[in-house]
């Protein structure tokens, strides 16, 4: 046996996953501690100052109304990230439960579920979202609920196909032979075997929601004007790119970095969880 690698060394293939994890943890901490870290009140205006570039007083400069960009980024992390977290949790819970039921039970439930997802796939999702949220008064909560419903079909399909292949395996037959209830077999036996996919789905849904919500904010849907929010900041500050480019570029970078980190982490978590216990029909 080769001696175990010294503890200070990290295998090169684990570096991207670790960096992603660190980035996400830092972003999460900043989101939580934002109000205490912010040097200024994110809403405080200083019309006399106007838009200025980064400097000693203002780390990332100010926007048109003289508001501190750095403080607004910290405060904006809340609406930008907490919504997607709810959406990811909601989509995964809904998609996993319905997908498992459809794939494991088959029958009429499966048929209805499949036609419903077909319908959802055929609809232009974001367009509907814009219309629905627009009509419903443009509230943030409506957008979150609508995105949960829009995101679920993908999860339903993925989990259903996995459940279909798992139910053919002998361990499911063995559990049936023992007289265990369908519910127990589904949630105690089959679901843990789908853990790698469920976790990586969770992270991918988060990315999808992050971009969709920021997109809506950019279009001015969901949040009232003036709210500190990454998507909204891009829209408000794109006109002052010449005065203080950071005011628009910083939120773009943050959205991109968060999305990329979550995607990579999703991949790595999937690889890690499925290592060694692959099981195929």
């Amino acid at each position: 046996m080769a001696a175990p690698v010294a503890g200070s060394r990290i295998a090169p293939r684990r570096v991207p996953g670790l960096i992603s994890l660190v980035v996400l943890v830092v972003i999460a901490l900043v989101t939580l501690l934002g109000p205490w870290l912010a040097p200024y009140d994110p809403g405080a205006q200083n019309a006399a100052l106007g838009a200025v570039g980064p400097g000693a007083d203002h780390l990332l400069g100010t926007d048109n109304l003289g508001r501190d960009v750095f403080s607004r980024l910290l405060a904006g992390a809340r609406t930008a990230l907490i919504g997607p977290i709810f959406i990811a949790a909601g989509t995964t819970a809904l998609g996993t439960t319905l997908g498992l039921l459809a794939g494991f039970r088959r029958g009429w439930l499966d048929a209805i579920m499949m036609r419903l997802t077909d319908l959802m796939f055929a609809l232009p999702g974001l367009l509907i979202l814009i219309v629905v949220v627009g009509i419903a008064g443009g509230s943030y909560v409506t957008a979150v609920v609508a995105l949960i419903v829009l995101g679920a079909p993908v999860d339903i399909r993925v989990i259903r196909s996995l459940a279909l292949s798992q139910r053919e395996l002998a361990y499911v037959d063995a559990a049936r032979t023992m007289g265990l209830s369908d519910r127990r077999i589904m949630f105690r036996h089959v679901l843990p075997n789908l853990a790698p996919t469920v976790t990586s789905n969770l992270l991918l849904s988060f990315v999808f929601a992050l971009i969709a919500l920021s997109g809506l904010s950019f279009l001015g849907i969901g949040l009232p004007a003036g709210t500190p929010d990454w998507g909204l900041m891009i829209q408000e500050n794109r006109t002052i790119l010449d005065l203080n480019p950071w005011a628009a570029v910083a939120p773009v970078l943050l959205i991109t970095i968060t999305a990329v980190a979550a995607t990579i982490l999703g991949d790595k978590v999937f690889e890690r969880l499925s290592a060694g216990k692959e099981l195929t029909a």
Binding site: Y171, M178, N193
Partner: peptide, 18 residues
């Protein structure tokens, strides 16, 4: 059901890996 039990052919799929 407990009256009759089964040992399946392929032990690598008949045990729940999780």
């Amino acid at each position: 059901r407990p009256l009759v039990q089964c040992v399946f052919q392929d032990p690598s799929t008949s045990l729940n890996p999780a």
